[in-house]
Design a protein around this nucleic acid. Structure first.
Lengths: 251, 251
DNA sequence: AAAATAGTGTCTTTAAGACACTATCCG
DNA sequence: CGGATAGTGTCTTAAAGACACTATTTT
């Protein structure tokens, strides 16, 4: 029996119930750390454990809309938050990933600069921005398969920094090259050469464009004022900015 | 109401019915053309139109297992076909993508060398390997949103050739550099420089390894026998083989 | 004044691409 | 033999990385 036949003879009681949910891996940078939004589960199973925010997809709701709504419910960020980047990460549907029933979850990845502290929702859930170093620790005990989803999201974010202008989604509308470099260093977890990075960023067509302005003040511990840039119109970076440590990590 | 609360109070009749299906974009190369497996729909809606093979996910079945099963049902290829590559492409869940009910479809991408002619299933469906040039023609009229899924699959395949050893999945266990080059030329749709390609492939660590053997005969129209290689152990290609035309296509 | 930072210059090494060339094999 | 193909050599250019250096600003 194929899809067509099955659906032609569709009867809600004739097949096993499946729930479709969205889970959101929302990253933001706070205090020079990459953090992910987690919520504390208020009911079984895994009551009291941390989990990714997520929930049931509503009847007439598109998948990305559902993801944006779930994020908004936790953070109070308007769904149409101007600088929010949302992309599909993958779908997780192992039959036993939720002990109660078959749940297929479509995971989304969200990036935004300086997202606010979670707003306690009307249902008074606890949500918190958690450093990814803690959240990916195997002893942290995320609920369900959320540790896998988070790991996949982190890997996606790291590699998207290489060949897309994703880093500009983590900084404000106007930013300095040093701020952009900080994003790379924080997400990749290793220091970059300031001079070479500077030249490289400016040499990639469409990555950033100058606003003409400079910062009000120099660096916190000294140094000249930095020129300001905004995101350019490139969708892909050519040539790409490759992670330094890729060489040996690769095989 | 969040996911946890919803599921805690789960009752199959309390929420709108959703079906979860898998659709498979299966690529193989036949007669120097990239082809995709399509089936002709035997019942409404879109009766008689071509569509990607796919179907309902069974109760205790994992998502990739469901995709492999759907492919096997059309091609007769054993699910454990030794050289079949299967990866998740994305999930398509627009509320109106199927007129009958809410259907969320998880699309998979499959690659294999020389897949056989489709075996008419027990239900006598018609299936055929169709050149992607025809299938992606906007007048070809694929059912549902399958034109979008196919386009996404093609784009994924093209870019995966760049930085992964995916091309080795389209050729036999042992292959020549020229055969590998043909894969790139067919999928990318443009000729490559034979000499530079040869040197490049051999210079990427872990891409291919020599078997020590050579072909029985030279090229069909002359030329020396070619050395034989098998896939190496690299998961990523460093440095990558970038598409020639990327330069201006990018922004 | 001291220290830190923004930004540039330059050199070395690696990789990509263009082109040429030889050796081998088919018909 | 003529033509096509496998594989290599070499040169030019682009890009990555290491290092040095100047100018500017903060404390």
């Amino acid at each position: 029996m194929d899809e067509a036949e099955f659906l032609a003879s569709y009867d809600p009681r004739a097949y096993p119930p499946v729930a479709v949910t969205v889970d959101v891996v929302a990253f933001t940078i706070r205090q020079d750390e990459l953090t992910v939004l987690l919520v504390r589960r208020a009911c079984p199973p895994s009551e009291g454990m941390w989990a990714l925010p997520g929930g049931f997809v509503r009847e007439w709701e598109d998948l990305p809309t559902a993801a944006a709504r779930e994020l908004a419910e936790e953070t109070g960020v308007a769904t149409a938050h101007r600088r929010l980047h949302l992309e599909q990460l993958g779908t997780y549907g192992a039959p036993d990933r939720d002990p109660r029933m078959r749940v297929v979850s479509v995971a989304y990845l969200a990036f935004a600069p300086h997202l606010p502290d979670p707003v306690p929702g009307s249902d008074a859930r606890v949500a918190a921005w958690t450093p990814v170093g803690e959240a990916t620790d195997s002893t942290y005990g995320l609920a369900f398969d959320h540790a896998t989803i988070l790991a996949d999201g982190l890997e996606r974010a790291r590699s998207k920094l290489e060949y897309t202008p994703l880093a500009t989604k983590f900084v404000g509308e106007e930013f300095t090259v040093a701020e952009l470099r900080a994003v790379y260093e924080i997400v990749w977890g290793e220091p970059l050469h300031a001079g070479n990075f500077h030249r490289k960023v400016l040499s990639v067509p469409g990555f950033v464009e100058s606003t003409g302005g400079v910062t009000e003040r120099g660096g916190a511990r000294g140094g000249p004022r930095a020129k300001l840039y905004r995101a350019g119109d490139a969708r892909l970076l050519h040539p790409a900015l490759l992670m330094p440590s890729r060489e040996e990590t690769v095989r």
